[in-house]
Amino acid sequence: MTRVRLADVAKAAGVSPATVSLVLNDAESRISDETKERVRRVADEVGYLPNPIARSLRTRVTGTIGLVSDRIATTPFAGRMLAGAQEVARENGRLVILVDTDGHPEIESDAISTLVNHRVDGMVYASMYHRVMPAPAGLPAGTVFLDCRPEGGGYPAVVPDDYAGGRAATQELVDAGHTRIAYIDDGDADRPVAAQLRLQGYIDVLTEAGVEPDASLHVFAETAAAGGQLAIAELMALPEDERPTGIFAFNDRIAAGVVMWAHRRGIRIPEDLSIVGYDDQQLVAAELDPPLTTVSLPHAAMGRWAMEVALGLREADTESPHLMDCPIVRRASVGPPAPLGSARDTRVTD
């Protein structure tokens, strides 16, 4: 199909190409309203579409935002970040060009270079999980870091407030009357930043409540249901008066393992054991029996914030990351602690 040219519009409208250009680009001119209306009507009738490359060279605006990520487009855990970012871009007439690198440095480097060469109007660099990292080479000034923060600052960044989230999870159990609260931590050798922040929130809330943190109640697990099952079995092997009545799990998948283990042994949740997860993971937290009380990672809100900064809709500090609130989502897995000698204690035999 032959592309309709600006000259074709000019011929059909009976004006010069320069007049068509001025009208269609809304440039200031002395052209009459009647002529402007005729040019626009003819352009619609003949199906004229402006050349986006030529327009971007002239205006230095391409209407596109580059978003480079490790795995957020291919994981069920963080896709809401992309949804939030795209929503803001769409509301402001921008198109997001996404490159998911699967964590490969060479692909990442090529992606950044290509997006810069295509003159994207802004750039967002996103991570699947909260981490501190060196800024990749070639990132343009003003690139926004999403769910990660650059070593040494220098760029705007947004991350979840995992310290406050750890506090909220622990406080939920303390407020329900629990004092024997276990934290099932991320057992990965390369522990993420979030693990230590959540642990510190847990410790600080216990201390403020007058509860001495007990090292035997801080255990590590694979961040999956299988890890949660092994961890709760270890905790419930403690002497009866040392077992936890409340569990704070590093993520919802660990919490799901705790729930599965408890169900198999006739341990009721929350009557016999209370559990708080973390992430509010789709198709996990709300689907457990009972539905899991958890801390929500604000993926969509972070995605929106990052895109708003990239588009210049809000200002951001380039030296300190913006900490996004991680709200508690109350469901049905937390209740008051069962007393010693109750059914919960006598049922645990392994």
Rank of each mutant, 00 (worst) to 15 (best):
V61H: 13
V158Q: 08
I53G: 03
A310E: 03
S113L: 14
T35E: 06
L288F: 07
A338T: 03
G228Y: 01
R243G: 09
L197M: 13
A135K: 02
D102I: 04
Q196Y: 10
R264I: 00
D161H: 08
L230E: 15
A338H: 08
A135D: 02
P291R: 09
Q200L: 10
P298N: 04
V20A: 01
E271R: 12
K11P: 02
S109V: 09
R180T: 10
A226F: 11
L49D: 01
V144E: 04
L340K: 07
R314D: 09
V219Y: 01
A83H: 13
R314G: 09
C148E: 05
A338K: 04
R191L: 07
V61C: 11
N251D: 15
S69F: 00
A226H: 10
L235E: 12
T179S: 11
G84E: 07
M260D: 11
A233W: 08
P105Y: 02
A85F: 00
A255Y: 02
P156C: 12
P270M: 08
R149F: 14
K36N: 09
T75E: 11
A168W: 01
V329D: 03
A27R: 15
G312F: 10
D241W: 08
L6W: 01
I275T: 04
S69P: 04
E34G: 04
V42M: 08
G166A: 06
G246I: 10
N117S: 15
M324G: 06
R265N: 00
E37A: 15
V205D: 04
I107Q: 12
R191Y: 06
G201W: 00
D241K: 13
Y183W: 12
L57F: 10
H218C: 12
I112Y: 08
M81W: 00
I31K: 06
D100T: 12
S56W: 04
T223P: 10
H104D: 15
P140K: 00
D252Y: 06
A224M: 11
T318P: 05
I181M: 13
R344N: 00
I269R: 02
V276P: 06
E234N: 13
R180I: 09
